[in-house]
């Protein structure tokens, strides 16, 4: 089963840590949105995506992350291709 987690909480929060750990335990893909994009500067995991709009709004350049940078068009494809999307964090 292909699972996608959408994480929006800032990296220094309990919500982020719980969501990220759970996603990794489930071998799920993760897309970082909103304040979670700050985490893309320090993570280098497989299946990690980050929203370009939210990065640029926060002054984070595409060259500051090893995650795959996506736009909303690509995110919609990921949402429709996944068997399950979990976006509550």
């Amino acid at each position: 089963m292909k699972t996608l987690f959408l994480i929006s909480s800032a990296p220094d929060t309990t919500e982020f840590r719980t969501a990220y750990r759970t996603a990794r335990e489930m071998h799920a893909d993760v897309c970082l949105l909103q304040s979670a994009v700050y985490a893309s500067r320090g993570l280098d995991d497989k299946g990690l995506f980050v929203m370009s709009d939210d990065m640029h709004l926060r002054g984070i350049g595409d060259d500051e992350t090893n995650a795959t940078v996506v736009d909303y068009n690509r995110l919609v494809d990921m949402l429709t291709e996944a068997d399950k999307v979990i976006g509550i964090f």
Partner: peptide, 19 residues
């Protein structure tokens, strides 16, 4: 919260794809 903006952008992109 920023969720409104995220929802607007995802919905816009999905509608543009005819979903």
């Amino acid at each position: 919260h920023e969720n409104t903006y995220t929802a607007l952008k995802i919905a816009e992109a999905a509608l543009d794809k005819g979903i």
